[in-house]
Amino acid sequence: MLSVGDFIVLPSQNLRKQEARASRRRSIDRWFGRIGLLSTIGTLGVLAILLLNLAASGLARIDWQFLLSFPSRRAAEAGILSAWVGTILLMIVTASVAVPLGVAAGIYLEEYAAKNKWTDFIEINIANLAGVPSILYGLMALGLFVYQFRFGQSVLAGGLALACLVLPIVIVATREALRTIPAAIREAAFALGATRWQAVWHHLLPYSTGGIATGVILAMSRAIGESAPLITIGALTFIAFLPPAPILAQAPFMSFDWLFSPFTALPIQMFNWVSRPGEEFQSNAAAAGLFLMLITLGMNGVAILLRKHAQRNIKW
């Protein structure tokens, strides 16, 4: 057998070598599999430790008094009322700017824009914008919204800063959702005589709501946790009052004064407490952090489920 041609130059003892190499590779693979699994668990473990840690020192602080009190010099009397109200108001501004603008931009880029260098430019710009550090949005808002537009250090300025920050997330999510709809659907609408906008409004948007909603939730969860841009525009950390109510008892029943009110928000309140010495303030920080975590992780969880659901329901 070995004499057949001069092709076989590997000596026969190589068979044993082959065997040894094969089994070595096998055990390397097995070890790497174990290391990988352990690292995965360990990394996810950090998240669990983080949550447990916050719960351990903050859970005891959470009660109605904590939720319904203003911040205070005395840690035990302090609460997060102005913080969560501020966060909600900020999110109203952020969502009402970022969602329509982002969805419209996504529709434009995916359904209307020609493939040319201008569109390329917008796309590169969006990709880059998504990587701009959040604090720079704060600086922009400080120079532009606070001083240039004279909005002051207000809910409006803060909400607009966060809206700019999450705009790329909404745009990208909208485009991805639209891209999953097959071209045949568009053609079917056009064949029936629909204009482009009618095709978008009657078909494409309704079919992509799942994907867009997922993106909007992720964007909002990002905005809720952001503190750097708000600190930069000078959001105060000690606010012992609520912004004026948007709904009034007498005519005109509505007021937008709250837009121009100073504010604080959950992450800023937490930052304030973290940087104070003393264990009591730290457990206040932990309690606020627990809130933030539950909100953001909860929103992310909803987004994950929504994405799964959307994937399962529509099969093109």
């Binding site: 931009a105 434009y108 430019f121 600086l139 700019c164 906008w197």
Partner: peptide, 28 residues
């Protein structure tokens, strides 16, 4: 009319992201 109007609304929104970058750069 709607079609024509929407094109402009959407085109503006598309360019809004460029406006944000522009705002950041100019401010800085």
């Amino acid at each position: 009319w709607v079609e024509g109007g929407m094109v402009w609304v959407l085109r503006f929104s598309g360019w809004a992201s460029v406006l944000v970058t522009f705002g950041i750069v100019v401010t800085l």
